[in-house]
Simulated assay, not measured.
Amino acid sequence: VLVVDRRSDRLRLAEEAGATAVDDSQGDHVERILDLTDGGADKGCECVGYQAHDPQGVERPEATMNDLVASVKATGGIGVVGVFLPQDDGAPTELTQEGKLPFDFGQFWFKGQRIGTGQANVKAYNRRLGNLIHHGRARPSFIVSHELPLAEAADAYRHFDDRDPGWTKVVLKP
């Protein structure tokens, strides 16, 4: 499992979970993925959504999708769990404001890749995952960076949204 990010705190958590961290601020991450996988990953997952941005901080909603087309092997699969909206008035271009992406469909088609999208079917998995946590077989709490009272939710979200160092996941307590 490879995790691409540029935040050292998140990359460190990925490594602690057993993944290989790829820092996209340190060069061409697509080439790094191709090197690490001998020509392309079997599958890739888009987990950022329309807020994807380049290392300089410029929002590029299409970036992760096109990077996945480039770094997933022919006939590989791409999962999309990042949030994409049918309309986003704050998006950087007229096209992306309409919820559309400049997507490398030609290369996607040529490589015979597949895409699956949508929100997680939480009800199908929550009981089983809850039992794994209860019995100590899964410990997702390692990604929690802060436990705060509900009254601090707005401030916590600002820190998370601004990608402030150390703000990986917040648990709010009423």
Rank of each mutant, 00 (worst) to 15 (best):
1 V>A: 13
1 V>W: 08
5 D>W: 00
5 D>M: 00
7 R>E: 10
9 D>G: 01
9 D>M: 04
10 R>V: 05
10 R>A: 03
10 R>T: 10
13 L>W: 01
15 E>M: 04
16 E>N: 14
17 A>D: 12
17 A>Y: 11
22 V>G: 00
23 D>E: 11
23 D>F: 05
25 S>C: 07
25 S>Q: 08
26 Q>N: 08
26 Q>F: 08
26 Q>W: 05
29 H>V: 02
33 I>V: 15
34 L>H: 01
34 L>W: 01
35 D>C: 12
36 L>C: 05
36 L>P: 06
37 T>L: 01
38 D>V: 04
40 G>M: 12
40 G>W: 12
42 D>P: 02
44 G>K: 00
44 G>C: 04
45 C>K: 02
47 C>F: 06
47 C>Y: 05
48 V>L: 09
50 Y>Q: 08
50 Y>K: 02
50 Y>N: 04
51 Q>M: 12
52 A>K: 00
53 H>T: 05
55 P>H: 09
56 Q>I: 06
57 G>R: 01
60 R>E: 14
60 R>M: 12
62 E>F: 11
62 E>A: 07
64 T>K: 00
65 M>I: 00
66 N>P: 02
67 D>A: 12
68 L>C: 09
69 V>Y: 11
70 A>E: 13
72 V>C: 07
73 K>H: 10
74 A>W: 02
75 T>K: 05
75 T>N: 06
75 T>R: 06
76 G>K: 05
78 I>R: 02
78 I>K: 05
81 V>S: 15
81 V>Y: 15
83 V>P: 06
83 V>E: 02
84 F>A: 07
85 L>E: 09
87 Q>P: 04
88 D>T: 03
89 D>R: 06
90 G>N: 12
90 G>F: 06
90 G>S: 13
91 A>K: 07
93 T>I: 04
93 T>Q: 07
93 T>C: 03
96 T>G: 06
100 K>I: 03
100 K>P: 12
102 P>M: 10
103 F>Q: 07
104 D>C: 03
106 G>P: 08
108 F>G: 07
110 F>R: 10
111 K>H: 08
112 G>R: 11
112 G>H: 11
114 R>A: 12
114 R>S: 15
116 G>A: 10
117 T>W: 13
123 K>L: 09
123 K>M: 09
124 A>F: 13
125 Y>H: 15
126 N>D: 07
126 N>F: 13
127 R>C: 05
127 R>G: 07
127 R>E: 12
128 R>T: 08
129 L>H: 10
131 N>A: 07
131 N>Y: 12
132 L>F: 10
134 H>K: 14
134 H>Y: 11
136 G>W: 06
140 P>C: 00
140 P>H: 00
140 P>L: 00
140 P>F: 00
140 P>N: 01
140 P>K: 02
141 S>D: 11
143 I>V: 11
144 V>G: 04
145 S>C: 06
145 S>A: 08
146 H>G: 01
146 H>S: 04
147 E>Q: 07
147 E>L: 04
147 E>M: 07
148 L>Q: 12
149 P>Y: 08
151 A>F: 09
152 E>N: 04
154 A>P: 14
155 D>A: 15
156 A>K: 08
156 A>V: 02
157 Y>A: 11
157 Y>W: 10
159 H>V: 00
161 D>H: 08
161 D>A: 09
162 D>A: 13
163 R>E: 03
163 R>M: 01
165 P>S: 06
167 W>A: 08
168 T>P: 01
171 V>M: 03
173 K>L: 12
